[in-house]
Design a binder for these strands. Sequence first.
DNA 1: CGTCTATTTGAATGTACTCAAAAGCGGTGG
DNA 2: CCACCGCTTTTGAGTACATTCAAATAGACG
Lengths: 189, 189
Amino acid sequence: MNQQLLNKIKAIVALSSEEERMLSGYWKEKTLKKGEYLLTNGAICRSDNYVIEGALKAYYINSETGNEEILFFAIEDWWASDLYSFQKQIPSIYNIQAVEDTKLLQIANESFQKMLVEIPQLERFFRIILESYLGTLQRKIILNQVYDAKHRYLDFLEQYPLIAARFPNYLIASYLNVSPEFLSRIRKK
Amino acid sequence: MNQQLLNKIKAIVALSSEEERMLSGYWKEKTLKKGEYLLTNGAICRSDNYVIEGALKAYYINSETGNEEILFFAIEDWWASDLYSFQKQIPSIYNIQAVEDTKLLQIANESFQKMLVEIPQLERFFRIILESYLGTLQRKIILNQVYDAKHRYLDFLEQYPLIAARFPNYLIASYLNVSPEFLSRIRKK
DNA sequence: CGTCTATTTGAATGTACTCAAAAGCGGTGG
DNA sequence: CCACCGCTTTTGAGTACATTCAAATAGACG
């Protein structure tokens, strides 16, 4: 298992070396080439995915226009899953695709459930992950609902400088819910 | 404690009669008159609130225009809390206000934590609540990002007929992120 | 009724979009 | 090393969806 994720967990939860060993056993490494899909619309998100290195985008396909609408990005040390589909094991409405060659750590839903029974302290860790995600979504809703495109872009640059540097502007435009042409006009200032 | 909430919990979690008794002890009833606040911007959401009867709105104040922007509604059998603020005990950016006379069941954060230690099965119940909320937020983001005002309004009517019947249109307009005038024009069709 | 709040209507305006085309940029191969 | 290709970004012009402001109308309630 990856040391970075382990450290993250141990920062929140105390683990015996035996538990640490068990924990590691549940996760498997997976690699994706640029352009490959981790999840497609209609499929169930069967694993929770931690990004070791690389970059991915999650998007929704507008059924009327066929356009991709970016919902979130994921890079090193982020999670790249449809948590709602993963937790409930129902079909996802997202697509998640590698934007660069990517290395992941995966845990299948069944393993995840078993792991939580074996190491119940982890409930706390994953609750905190869920809460952080919740906070991110709340923030995104407010920004989209309340502020104009320029304000959203500036907030984005401040909040996610690493993402802004790593993904092309036309994807960032979609995430911010503006057209690429209009984002370009915003950037001129 | 209120029977309806108890039934909801027991539908998901097995409880001994002793546990049921302990559980009930943690919750307190609270009433709000129409117009009173449950939470104001900058305050910490210190309790989780289950609505027994009545109706509330949660909104964000746009710091530039001073406008209320509705984030969610809550009626009977819903939760009316800023979960993010409640879980992390950090200041909320929301206001939550009674739109009708309202009766709530409240549990303070400290009690909530104690309760989860005493009755660990409840972890599961509250995880499920959190997940449902997550699903709602995801849906809202996609609707706002992808579909036009008419589509959002029709989806809203279908998803939340009880809310649509209960709150004035100018609040629903705010929730849907359109002006009340424009919602009125949409409704003409 | 009269008053207060909510909804509707009209007209002018604006923010952001679409479509089309040009320009920039990076890699690859001749 | 330069030419070409594909992809991303920029620019321009016309347009649309939705807003704002103002005023009229409709509803609810004491």
